[in-house]
């Protein structure tokens, strides 16, 4: 890579690594795994750097690399390496399910999803991508995205029934 590309790459990392890390942290649920994921995606991007001159294309490429790596990592290992969430309760105390408790319950429930399920939820509810955008990013059909999201939400509710009652509690 020539010096100009190196400078570009440096600038990209300096300006975007924090945002990439945040998404990676949501995908993995673990700080170290998140750093690894970003690094691995950046390495793949660097190899393609000369063909990616448009800044939007660069970021899209890195992100796509992260999503795919996260999904396939889980496939390889057969099990998501999920972080133990300290003292996150499995179920919030009944009758005290305020917003903070519910978020803790949600985190515990998220840790029981498959990597693919978690990824579609991050793309939909954190990255705010549409179902069509998600289908492009993950290379699957829109129908499949829709059913993944539906199944993921159902699984969250099944894992933590109090989440199903969120509407009534508010």
């Amino acid at each position: 890579m020539d010096p100009r590309c190196e400078a570009d790459f440096r600038h990209f990392i300096i300006s975007r690594s924090a945002a990439l890390f945040r998404t990676a942290y949501l995908l993995t649920g673990d700080r170290h795994a998140a750093e690894d994921l970003v690094q691995s995606a950046l390495a793949k991007t660097a190899a393609k750097w000369s063909t990616l001159r448009d800044p939007t294309a660069i970021e899209a490429y890195v992100r796509r690399a992260m999503y795919h790596e996260q999904v396939s990592r889980w496939r390889r290992r057969g099990r998501l390496t999920e972080t133990a969430m300290g003292n996150v309760p499995d179920h919030a105390d009944e009758g005290h399910a305020d917003s903070a408790d519910l978020r803790l319950t949600m985190r515990a429930a998220l840790s029981r999803l498959t990597s693919r399920q978690r990824t579609v939820l991050v793309l939909r509810y954190f990255e705010d991508l549409s179902e069509t955008e998600i289908s492009h990013v993950l290379g699957i059909g829109v129908g499949s995205v829709r059913s993944q999201i539906y199944r993921s939400l159902e699984r969250l509710k099944k894992t933590a029934p109090e989440l199903d009652a969120v509407r009534e509690l508010q």
Binding site: L121, F126, L163
Partner: peptide, 20 residues
């Protein structure tokens, strides 16, 4: 609030609890 809003809140809370 519904489960989707709760997900959004949970994700944004998580996203900012770790300094990059």
């Amino acid at each position: 609030m519904n489960i989707e809003d709760l997900l959004r809140e949970t994700f944004s809370e998580m996203a900012y609890e770790q300094a990059p």
